[in-house]
Nucleic acid binder design. Sequence first.
DNA 1: CGCGATACGTAGCAAGTGCTACACTTCGTA
DNA 2: TACGAAGTGTAGCACTTGCTACGTATCGCG
Lengths: 164, 164
Amino acid sequence: MTQEVGKAKREQIVQSVANHLVREGFTNSGIRALAVSAGLSDRMLMYYFETKEELIAEALALLTQNMAAALDQLLPERQTPAAEIVSTALASTQNPQLQASLRLWFEIVGLAVRGTEPYGQTAKQILQDWEDWIKRRLRSDQRHRAPEILAQVEGQLLLQLLRA
Amino acid sequence: MTQEVGKAKREQIVQSVANHLVREGFTNSGIRALAVSAGLSDRMLMYYFETKEELIAEALALLTQNMAAALDQLLPERQTPAAEIVSTALASTQNPQLQASLRLWFEIVGLAVRGTEPYGQTAKQILQDWEDWIKRRLRSDQRHRAPEILAQVEGQLLLQLLRA
DNA sequence: CGCGATACGTAGCAAGTGCTACACTTCGTA
DNA sequence: TACGAAGTGTAGCACTTGCTACGTATCGCG
């Protein structure tokens, strides 16, 4: 079971690993590369985390939170027409930081479709966050359109990233 | 450079590898596993193909063709309202064979967003095939909507596969 | 002081990766 | 029938993967 020791250090490591994942993606993210990014030895990584999967899961959870927060900053929470929600979401590819996160998102999707954890759960959570974000900006009588709008956003983002 | 020998055998190997990829995805698709699926030794795989990348690229090219053919069978080539195009495309997740191909597609996307070849080129090609498929079914005055419809389809497929 | 928990370095293992060296047979053709 | 190309088996290399064994330094606390 996971130890309760070195909480502050753990959190700092998780933050470093999250940054690494956004920058590099999942290729070249072995424990040695992650350890370098976090400024310690791979030996220490396995000291603070029982398995690599545990480490990745925590980093992804952190990124999920950050992503949700970034979304909220993107557009104030008020009644907004669907078209504006879509165009605002699409504009996020202009921001290099957000674009890197989106690349990572589609990598997670690629892993999640095979059902491998923790990617499946992470993907569902992120999708839910997107949908909630959209719902909070739609007029109440429009909320049922959220999934359709989400699909439009995801599809357009995919096209934008692949056609770059 | 690639040799011109054993063309028939090569094609049969490529077919086997393509089937393997659809079934298994890219994880557990090392040359040894691919060799077993193709019914020969990994040694022979490297005899017919200079690198693994060459083999994968050819298998993906074959799958791209097959996918385009499968799409054409899905809906006859005639003027069709956008909504029907979308719903027909979405119904493809009901067919297990097509669903497996779609999973692979999103895996390819995950690799392509980092620009790693041959996935980037393959992804662009498949996207183009989808778009052409849609265009051929739209009234001429509706063709400009093809990218938007494609986005809707891709987004809905993503949601369907992830929420399963 | 002494002792146990926390923290860390060095080295390495077992399995898997793409790929290769070398020896051998089988075969079509001249 | 001889000879070179095509085809194949056995073994292994160099490297990366996640993870571990073992020893030691440091620290708070009784």
